[in-house]
Amino acid sequence: MDFKYSTALYLIAGAVILFVLAQSVFFLIKAYKQGRTLGLDKSKLRNAITSSALFTIPSALSILATIIALVPALGPVIPWVRLSVIGNLMYETTAAEAAMEAFGHEGGMAVAVSDPEVYAGVAWVMTLGICFSLVILPFLAKPLHKKILQAGKKEAPKAEATENAPADGKKKRSLNGFINDFATPAIFIGLIGAFIARAIIGSGKPETFGDGAGVLSIITLVVAIVVSIALEVLAKKLKLAWLEPFVMPIGMIIAMVAAIVFFNILPEEIAMLEWRG
């Protein structure tokens, strides 16, 4: 049996995940009790639980899809832990690729890791690469939070004054303003854009199909973008709030279905064409 599917690995992963689950349950109970102490309605608190659970389902399914996407290369256990603890759709695929590159694993995500040493190395790199936020959080969260609470109290009258002030045409463009409004989207666009650029013009190994840019990667990319934008516009125009959380998973699944359909209907030499190997 493939070592990546062994029961012991599932148990190691299960123990880590159970701990994280217990933490969430602990915070949920404490916050619920505090809500009752503050006089918040039971129905209000229950609604928060129900709506959050429903809101989460489509995204959780797309996270599950990412786990499935990583399974051929890494088996189920590493992706399961990495996407249950700290993990993120974007970071984990990148981290897995970087780790495999570092251990000389050729073919990237398209080829299964069969050497236990590389497998363990990938687990180390993915864990240490992502865990820094947990190292700094205990030091930064409390002072930051206190500052925000104080700033919130001072900011309210200031905001009113700004609204009433005559427009002089010159807006103050501070570094703080940039960080608040644009730093995170810019970082995300850099991350997402790297994979999009690779799907357009990146090269892979000549002997491996699916790791380089080609006809199928472009079709999949375009379908994913067009379907997601169309659904987003549809949800906004028709005010279908329930559709919004499903836009990303539906766009992704339809794009993957498009890859299967076009792979089968296009002549083989076109379907398998990768311009740079």
Partner: peptide
């Protein structure tokens, strides 16, 4: 298999669409 070989363009295309419209 072709679908799983193209999961990254599908994932990042769908994820990117929302960001690209907004930003």
């Amino acid at each position: 298999k072709p679908a799983f070989a193209q999961v990254l363009p599908a994932l990042f295309g769908a994820l990117g669409a929302g960001y690209f419209i907004k930003h």
